[in-house]
Design a protein around this nucleic acid. Structure first.
Lengths: 206, 206
DNA sequence: CCATAATGTGACCGCATGGTCATATTCTTA
DNA sequence: TAAGAATATGACCATGCGGTCACATTATGG
C-alpha cells in the first residue's frame, strides 16, 4: 500500500501520478518500466516518489489493483442482466462488454494485457495475492447454466468451450483496441460472426 | 548476419553460443535479455561476443531466423499431406502439429511467443524484414479451399473463422507447453473437442 | 511569530547494461 | 622456428537503473 503521505496529497497531484504510472506500466513490462520515467512524466522528484510509495512493486500493485477494480465495476452492471438473456445474447454481451472496456479504458485494458505477458514472477505474484479476478469462472458458470437449461448440446466439452470462448474474447479485445482502423460496427459484426460460428458450427448442412 | 569469425568457430562452441542465446531470448524480451547473461551462460568473454556479432540486434535476428526456419521445416512435411485430408482433419493436423512443435522445441516455441509480445519496434522490424512467416496465410488458404469445395457453409465469415482458428491454435499450444501436467492424450482429446465445436457448433439440434 | 512536523528535492550510491579497445594468446604457414 | 594473421580477453566507458539521504521548503498550531 502507498504511504499515508500519498493519500494526503491534493487529489489533482495524486491523479497525475496515477496517470503517469498507468501510462508507463501499460506500455512497458514491470522491469522495463522505470521510476525515473514515471517521475519525469508526473513532474515530481524521485525523492518525492519514495515519500509516497515503499518501492516500485508497491506502486505496481496499487496501479494494477485500480485497473482490476475499474474492470469489475465496468462489468458489474452487465452481470445483473445475464439472467434474462439467451445464451447467444450472453456471449454477445460478454464479448461486446470486453471490447467496450478495452475501447473506453484503453490504458486499463493495456495494463491487463501487460499483466498477461508479465514475466517477473515476484510482481505477478504480488498482484495475484492482492486479489486477481477470475474471468474464467464467469464463463464456466454461464456454460453450466446453459447446459442445465438444455441450450447447449450435451456432447459439447465444457472445458474446451470455455477455452475457446476465452481465447476468442481476448482476440476480440485485441482487435478492438488496435486503434480506429476498425470501427465499432466492424467489431460488432465480427462478434456476431464469431458467435454464429460457435453457435451453429461451420459444417455445411443439408 | 554474424561475422565470418562466428562461422569459423568449431561447431560445438558455435552451438553452445546459439543455445545460450536461445535460452535467454526465449525467457526475456529483447531489451531485458542481456549480452552479459548470454556470455556468462556460454562461457565466453564479452569481447569475444563482439568478434562474432556486430551487436545485440545482429544476434537476435540470427536466433529468430533460426527458430523460424526450424518451425517451417517442422511444418513442411505436414503441408504436403494437407491436400489429401478433409477439412476437420486439416484443422486437427494444424493444431496438433502446432502443439507438437511447442512440445518438441519448447525453446523455439517460446521464442515465437516472446516475439508475439515483443515491444521493441526496431528489433521486431529487423526480424520481420529478414523474413517472418505468415501463419495466418496458411489458414486463409485452407478456408478458401474448403469453401470452394463446399465443405464450409457459405454463411461463415472467413475473417472471423481465421481469427477464431488462430486464437484457438495459440491457446492449444500454450496449454501444450504448460509442463507435463497435461498429457499428450489430454491435449489430443481437447483438440478433438475444440474442432467438434467449431465444426458442429454448440447449439442443441432436434 | 516561531518551533516543529510534514513534505519536496536532486546529488549520490552500487550495480548492470551495450559496446570498445589495447593487449595477450593461439593458429597458420613458409 | 619465426612472423603474421586470427582470435580471446577483461578492464573500461557512458548511460540508466532502483533506492537513499542530508538538506531545503512549506504547513501547522500554540
Amino acid at each position: 500500500m502507498p504511504k499515508a503521505t500519498f493519500f494526503n496529497l491534493p487529489s489533482e497531484k495524486r491523479e497525475l501520478i496515477i496517470s503517469a504510472a498507468t501510462q508507463v506500466f501499460s506500455a512497458e513490462r514491470y522491469n522495463a518500466a522505470s521510476i525515473n520515467q514515471i517521475c519525469r512524466k508526473a513532474g515530481i522528484a524521485k525523492g518525492s516518489f519514495y515519500q509516497y510509495f515503499d518501492n516500485k512493486l508497491d506502486l505496481y500493485v496499487y496501479i494494477m489493483k485500480s485497473a482490476i477494480q475499474a474492470k469489475v465495476r465496468f462489468f458489474s452492471d452487465a452481470v445483473d442482466e445475464f439472467n434474462n438473456l439467451s445464451l447467444s445474447e450472453q456471449f454477445k454481451l460478454l464479448f461486446v462488454k470486453g471490447a467496450e472496456f478495452a475501447k473506453a479504458q484503453p490504458l486499463y485494458a493495456a495494463l491487463g494485457e501487460q499483466f498477461l505477458i508479465e514475466n517477473d514472477e515476484a510482481a505477478k505474484a504480488a498482484v495475484i495475492k492482492e486479489g486477481d479476478m477470475q474471468a474464467q469462472s464467469l464463463l464456466i458458470t454461464m456454460i453450466q447454466n446453459a447446459k442445465a437449461k438444455g441450450e447447449i448440446d450435451n456432447g459439447v466439452d465444457e472445458l474446451a468451450l470455455s477455452i475457446l470462448l476465452q481465447s476468442v474474447s481476448d482476440a476480440v479485445s485485441k482487435l478492438g483496441n488496435m486503434g480506429s482502423e476498425s470501427s465499432a460496427e466492424d467489431i460488432n459484426s465480427l462478434v456476431d460472426s464469431l458467435i454464429s460460428i460457435v453457435y451453429n458450427g461451420i459444417r455445411k448442412r443439408d
